[in-house]
Nucleic acid binder design. Structure first.
Lengths: 190, 190
DNA sequence: TTGCTTATTAGACTTTAATCCATTAATTAA
DNA sequence: TTAATTAATGGATTAAAGTCTAATAAGCAA
C-alpha cells in the first residue's frame, strides 16, 4: 500500500524548518492568539498553501514546533535509586513546571484548540500529555515495588490526580512553582 | 457614583431571555462551535448589536445561559450526617458528572474560550469552578472534623486534586461515570 | 527532449466573530 | 409638546482561518 509513483517535485524541507522556527518564535514573543497564519508564512517566506500542505491547522504546526523544541523536558529521567521516590516525583514535577513556565501560555492555547478539534485533541494527548502521565505512573509503581507507597493504591488514578492538579492550575492561570510540586507530592505520599 | 440619568428607552428584558434560550437550545443541539452569532440572533429575533449590548462575547452569553439553566447541579448539598464522608463525596461527584454529561461539551468549549480571554476565564472560574471546589474543600474539612480523614492533610490541595482529576478527564474526552467517582474517592480516603 | 507527477506560489474566495454607524423607537423631564 | 437620553435595528466593515484554483517549478522515466 501507499506506494508513491516516482517523480514529482520533492518536498522542500527548508520550508518546514522555516515554518516551525517562525511559528515558535512568533508565538513565544507575541502569544498564540496574536499570531496570524499570515504573519507566520511571511516570516518563513513561504506560501500559505505550503503550510497547509504540511499541517492542517495552526495548532498542528505550533504543537510540532513546541514539541521538537522541548524534547529535553519530555525525556524520561532514569530514576536515581539513591533518592526516594517522593523526592524523584517532586523533582520531576519541578522539571515539568520549568517547561510550563516557558511554553505554558502556548500550551493553554493548544488545549483550547483541542476542545474545538477532536483530531487535534487526540494528537495532543498522545504526543504531549500521555507520555508524561505514563512516566509518573511508572514512577509510582516503582515506589510501590520499593515499599515507599502502599501497593493497594491505584497508580494510574494517582497519576491522573497529579496531572489533573497541575493542568487544572495551568488552565486557571495559577502559578506552577516549587511549592506546588511539594504540596502535590505530599498529598500523594500520604 | 454610577447614577443613571432618568429617561431613555428601557432595556428589553425579553430580548435577554430570548437570547439565552436560543443560545442554550442551539448549543445543546448543534454544539458550541457549530452555532454562529448570526444563528442565535436569528432564532431570538433580535439585532446583533442587542446581543453585544448585553454580553461581550458568545462565551459570556453561553456561560450565563448554561449557568442559569443548571443552578440545580451547582447547589451546595446539606451534608447528611447519617452517611460517612466518603459516601458523600462519591455521591456529590456522581451528581457533578450527571451535569457534565449534559453540558460537558459546552463546558469544554467555554474552557477553551477562557484560554483566549483572561476576563472570561476569571468569570468562568469564579462563577462555575470555584464554588464547587469550595464545596468539596468544606466536605473534606468536615471529614477531618469527624475523624474520617487525617487532619494532617491539606484539604485545599486534595480538593484541587479531585477537581483536576475530573476536569482533566473531561478535557481529554474521557468518560465521567460512577466508576470514576468511586476511584477518585478511594484515592482521597486512603 | 518530452511527458508525467507532485510541490510551490500568489491571490481570490468563504465564513465567522466582533466592531461601527446612522436611523428609528421608547421612555422621562421640562 | 418638546428635548434629552438610552436602546434596538439593519447593514457595512474589519480581521483572520481556512479553502480553492490556475500558473509555475522541480524532479523522474521514456
Amino acid at each position: 500500500m501507499s506506494e508513491k509513483k516516482a517523480g514529482g517535485r520533492p518536498i522542500n524541507a527548508q520550508a518546514s524548518t522555516a515554518l516551525k522556527a517562525a511559528a515558535l518564535h512568533l508565538v513565544r514573543e507575541y502569544g498564540y492568539e496574536n499570531v496570524s497564519i499570515a504573519a507566520i508564512i511571511k516570516e518563513a517566506g513561504v506560501a500559505r498553501q505550503t503550510l497547509y500542505n504540511r499541517w492542517s491547522t495552526k495548532a498542528d504546526l505550533v504543537l510540532e514546533a513546541v514539541f521538537e523544541a522541548t524534547n529535553t523536558y519530555a525525556a524520561q529521567p532514569r530514576w536515581d535509586d539513591a533518592k526516594d521516590c517522593r523526592t524523584l516525583l517532586e523533582e520531576f514535577l519541578v522539571k515539568i513546571f520549568e517547561h510550563l513556565n516557558i511554553d505554558g501560555d502556548t500550551l493553554r492555547a493548544l488545549v483550547a484548540s483541542a476542545q474545538r478539534d477532536a483530531a487535534f485533541q487526540a494528537s495532543f494527548y498522545t504526543r504531549f500529555v500521555l507520555p508524561r502521565e505514563e512516566m509518573i505512573t511508572s514512577l509510582l509503581r516503582h515506589a510501590q515495588e520499593r515499599g515507599e507507597l502502599s501497593s493497594g493504591r491505584d497508580a494510574v488514578m494517582m497519576s491522573a490526580l497529579v496531572h489533573g492538579a497541575f493542568w487544572y492550575r495551568l488552565l486557571n492561570r495559577n502559578p506552577l512553582d516549587a511549592k506546588l510540586a511539594k504540596d502535590i507530592t505530599s498529598e500523594i505520599f500520604v
